[in-house]
């Protein structure tokens, strides 16, 4: 025994199906409405009702949270009926679907970039629309997300430094790349300080003979930090890193001096030994048969 809906779905009464689809949509029974609209979209090709039908079709998908298909339908609508009274709304919702599909900052941001493009396109089309203000706000949110992603991923290398010292050097490179990519990033102070910190940690965990140069680099980054953010809350922390770096240089020099001293001592001893051994080695040489 088939339900009334099933009977209607299988029937050929298109206008009744259309009426029922709209009724179901208004009743918020979107999944049933979708089934009817899907079937009707093909059949209404090239008719006057197609415009309204496609409008409802797109919104049904949107209500069902199938944003990927919905945004395609919205775009299709706006492209087919550019003069429709719904065109602006559909362009906006098409872009908004991308916005809703933009994932967490720690995942692939393909949809975020597409959302920014789509929202920007909307603003370009309808700069005076009330929705343009909202669209601009969404763009700002998405940019924020991209900044967070860049910062988190660069910071990851600093976090991993404890496991492998080479990551500290990677952190410096990655953090600087973030600066270049997002010059006015909101995390700029943290980034600049983290560069000093990463370079300091890198130097600290290096062999003594590489330390001075690397600490110097850290002090260089400290100077850049102070120049950019003289009034930052993080100044005291930066200063501490600079002092530690200076101390590091002093201790590295001391170690190197001591090593040099020892090496000289051994060299002197070895020379002394050689003089004593001179006679014995000569004897040995004679003993060795030559070919």
């Amino acid at each position: 025994c088939k339900s009334r809906f099933e009977k209607l779905r299988l029937s050929n009464d298109v206008s009744k199906k259309y009426q029922e689809g709209i009724r179901l949509y208004n009743k918020k029974d979107y999944s049933k409405a979708l089934i009817l609209f899907e079937g009707l979209a093909q059949k209404y090709r090239g008719t006057a009702e197609a415009e309204d039908l496609n409008y409802y079709y797109a919104f049904t998908l949107y209500r069902l949270k199938d944003y990927t298909t919905a945004r395609y339908k919205f775009k299709e609508f706006a492209d087919t009926y550019p003069n429709s009274k719904y065109a602006e709304e559909c362009r906006y919702y098409g872009a908004y679907c991308y916005y809703l599909d933009s994932p967490n900052s720690s995942l692939d941001q393909e949809n975020t970039y597409k959302a920014i493009d789509a929202l920007q396109l909307f603003i370009n089309y309808y700069p005076k629309s009330e929705r343009a203000v909202q669209a601009a706000q969404y763009i700002a949110n998405l940019r924020d997300k991209l900044e967070t992603k860049a910062f988190d991923n660069a910071k990851l290398y600093y976090t991993l430094g404890g496991y492998d010292v080479a990551y500290y050097r990677s952190a410096v490179v990655a953090l600087k790349n973030t600066q270049i990519e997002f010059p006015d990033i909101k995390y700029i102070e943290e980034i600049d300080l983290l560069i000093v910190k990463s370079q300091y940690m890198y130097a600290k965990n290096s062999y003594p003979h590489r330390q001075e140069e690397r600490f110097q680099e850290a002090i260089g980054y400290y100077n850049e930090f102070m120049e950019a953010h003289p009034d930052s809350k993080l100044v005291s922390e930066a200063k501490q890193l600079k002092e530690d770096s200076e101390a590091g240089i002093a201790s590295a020099r001391k170690i190197l001096a001591k090593e040099a001293e020892e090496a000289a001592k051994y060299a002197a001893l070895a020379k002394k030994d050689e003089k004593q051994k001179d006679t014995t080695t000569k004897k040995a040489e004679i003993k060795t048969p030559i070919k």
Binding site: P103, N104, S106, L107, D108, E110, K149, D152, N153, L156, Y157, L160, A166, Y167, R169, S170, V172, V173, A174, N177
Partner: peptide, 27 residues
Amino acid sequence: NNKISVVGNTITNDRVVLRNVYTKPGE
């Protein structure tokens, strides 16, 4: 190596992949 990134991770977080990647920036 300069920028190392992951594309196509729609479920798994960046750090889960990046921490297993051996090509590091600056090397």
